[in-house]
Amino acid sequence: MMTPHVEYVLRIADSSLILGQRLSELCGHGPVLEEDIAITNIALDCIGQARLLLTHAGKLEGAGRDEDQLAFLRNEGEFRNVTLTELPNGDFGRVVLRNFLFSSFLEQLWAGLAASADTELAAIAAKSAKETRYHREHSADWVVRLGDGTDESHGRMAQALSALWPYMAECFAADGVDDAVAASGIGVAWSTLEAGWRQAVGPVLAEATLEPPPDTPFRSRGRCGVHSEHLGHLLAVMQHLQRSHPGARW
């Protein structure tokens, strides 16, 4: 059994890793060269943050697993990323909107973790906060530009928002792991980040002339290991090499 501490770190690590893997799919496929490079740079930061967090989770777990074993040799049900991060990219508008919603959440999370009793986690959070700020700014610019753009771009952004918004609710649901790490001063309960997150995304969406859909009872459960049909396919691509050639290095 994993301790709440390990589970909590894995949730953040896996969310960064899976989002990074999704974003890396745009490498060589961006709509224009500048955005291809920007998204790929953001993907690299996400994967870099995931590496630090996975390494840390492996040490906390104490079972001798390193970052590679955790990334490449776990099955779908063992991943703890929030479902939002594993959804297929869709069009460019949807890519930047997900980045915006999730980096706005991460910004709150990193700030909350800066005072963690787990000093390694606090250090990773303080470092990541600086990078996430640039990710958020990049995506917020695009959300406004596309949302408050042509009829076509506005329509696509509105559609993307109604598709992605319900998946954010998972991040703020009450949760036993959160309660345990919050009580021990290791982590911040994600549910406490919702107000700050709404304050951060509200003005940008308003400027983009986009209105979030009404909240629904739907709660995805990726961080508890219950995933959509999309994660298995993503892992098949991401893990293929290590599964076919165990221990391969270059």
């Binding site: 490079i37 920007a38 740079n41 953001i42 690299l44 930061d45 640039y134 990049h138």
Partner: peptide, 13 residues
Amino acid sequence: RLSAFGATACKAL
């Protein structure tokens, strides 16, 4: 500004 990210993460174009 042409792009928020340049050839490397540390630079913008």
